[in-house]
Write a protein that binds this DNA or RNA. Structure first.
Length: 447
RNA sequence: GGCCCUAUCGUCUAACGGUUAGGACGUCGGCUUUUCAAGCCGAUAAUCGGAGUUCGAUUCUCCGUAGGGCUACCA
């Protein structure tokens, strides 16, 4: 059997989104699983709608995703070849130049139409089995606006053949285009490749994913701080599964496990919440070094950030964020107290839902200073807890409002935040000197 | 309208014609923590409807229904 060649053929008429990308992923997985090759073809025959910025976006997105193609073609580079075959078809009277009524702006007075032989056309789809259509109703459809401007159906057939594409893996929206492409292939005496029509990816409103219904550009996911392999992992599970209970697979594992016969027939809705959880999973798999390196890409370089402290914050970041974008937010939000002095509000210092006893709070905080001194430098959160909890529990025993009467003011004094990591972790990271200093500042506010 | 495709928890999905219809995400509850997050434990929830075929249909067939796609001088 010949080596498998698949292709991804986006048109540069919009930003690459998850629907396009999922098609690329499956096409890539199918090729790589069999040791075949994957090529990229920019379908830019529609000069009116094709834009350089969209073409660049495709390259940019694929580079970020590390979806490497063996070869890259631009359809417009094959004009001479298209013209040659168009002329051949007309010479053989299999197509003809037709006079047209101009209905819309941009319409030509003459176009090239294909002489449709009509009849039943069937092909075997790798995912759906045999599909049969009567092509008679298609009529003599247009295959080119002029000899130098072939239309999609014609260009695709010629290019797939010239580029040695053996398997066309594309979206379900092309099922009804396939029969007409097959009759063009027959007229040209070209071999018909294998087809695999993927189920569509839908927006939550159940329509085909598009910019209109809120689909993000792939590059947006990059800018939001998603891991490319997380997106790859999530998307490969939209319409496919390996047949066992695994949900988190690396790219190599996906290539190994991919089996086109397990591809779903029904379309799937793109669920960003689940993507987020898959991304969180892969962020946590990262080593602290890798995590830090990726994190630095997301921190505004102009923002001076204590890299030593950032290193200490990694486990908190891994535990609390689902994207690097979120992690970056935390640096100036709930985790900001690691990098700068907290700004304290006197009212907030006394525990919530407890009678306000500033004096009691002062006593509670003062009671922590001594135990804190006994802590070794670099004590773990568990060690800190072992030291602090007895004080809090003693306070509770004295019925001054429970452990919260100590723990809340302590946490708030350290963080200045309504929500933050627990006080033990904070002390462990901040160190006993800094912690003691913050506690004294809090006391000073109260007295 | 015509043609084509599809149909299992809210979502992604598993289940050689025989399972208490399984997992994951979400949601809800509990534990833990007097914050938040995480973690652990638990719960909720599905075979679109109707006929067949069969001893037995989620699974096979047909008919409905619903959704989607195509129906361009877009791809």
């Amino acid at each position: 059997m010949n080596k498998v060649v698949t292709r991804f053929a986006p048109s540069p008429t919009g930003f690459l989104h998850a629907g396009n990308y999922r098609t690329a992923v499956f096409s890539y997985l199918f090729a790589k699983h069999t040791g075949g090759s994957f090529i990229l073809r920019i379908e830019d025959t529609d000069t009116a709608r094709s834009k350089k910025e969209y073409e660049d976006n495709i390259y940019e997105a694929l580079a970020w995703l590390d979806l490497r193609s063996e070869k890259t073609y631009r359809q417009s580079e094959h004009k001479a070849r298209h013209r040659e075959l168009l002329e051949k078809l007309v010479a053989e009277n299999l197509a003809y130049v037709s006079k047209e009524e101009v209905k819309n702006e941009g319409d030509r007075e003459e176009v090239i139409r294909f002489r449709n032989p009509g009849g039943l056309v069937s092909f075997t789809d790798l995912i759906r089995g045999e599909i049969t259509t009567d092509v008679t109703d298609l009529g003599d459809f247009v295959i080119a606006k002029s000899f130098d401007e072939p239309v999609f159906h014609f260009a695709v057939v010629v290019d797939d053949s010239d580029e040695g594409v053996t398997h066309v893996v594309r979206g379900e929206d092309h099922i009804s285009n396939t029969p007409r492409q097959i009759i063009i292939q027959r007229a040209l005496h070209l071999e018909t490749p294998q087809y695999a029509h993927l189920p569509l990816i839908l927006s939550p409103d159940r329509t085909k994913l598009s910019k209109r219904n809120g689909a993000r550009a792939i590059t947006d996911y990059r800018d939001l701080g998603f891991l490319p392999d997380a997106l790859f992992n999530y998307l490969s599970f939209l319409g496919w599964n390996p047949g066992d209970d695994r949900e988190y697979l690396t790219r190599d594992e996906l290539i190994e496990a991919f089996d086109i016969s397990r591809v779903q027939k029904g379309s799937a809705i793109f669920d960003e919440t689940k993507l987020l959880s898959v991304n969180q999973h892969w962020m946590r798999q990262l080593s602290d070094e890798d995590f830090l390196a990726k994190m630095m890409d997301f921190v505004n370089p102009s923002l001076s950030i204590d890299s030593e402290m950032l290193g200490k914050a990694v486990s908190l970041l891994k535990e609390r964020s689902k994207t690097f974008g979120e992690a970056r937010e935390m640096l100036s939000g709930e985790l900001s107290c690691l990098f700068e002095q907290p700004c304290l509000d006197k009212e907030r210092l006394t525990a919530k839902e407890l009678p306000s006893h500033p004096r009691m709070t002062v006593l509670a905080l003062e009671g922590l200073l001594e135990p804190l001194k006994s802590l070794p430098e670099g004590a773990s959160p568990e060690a800190v807890k072992l030291t602090i909890m007895p004080v809090a529990n003693a306070e509770e025993a004295k019925e001054k409002g429970g452990r919260g009467a100590v723990l809340w003011p302590l946490r708030y004094a350290l963080s200045g935040q309504e929500h933050s990591p627990d006080p033990f972790t904070l002390i462990s990271i901040l160190g006993k000197e800094e912690s003691a200093s913050r506690i004294r500042k809090a006391i000073a506010i109260l007295v």
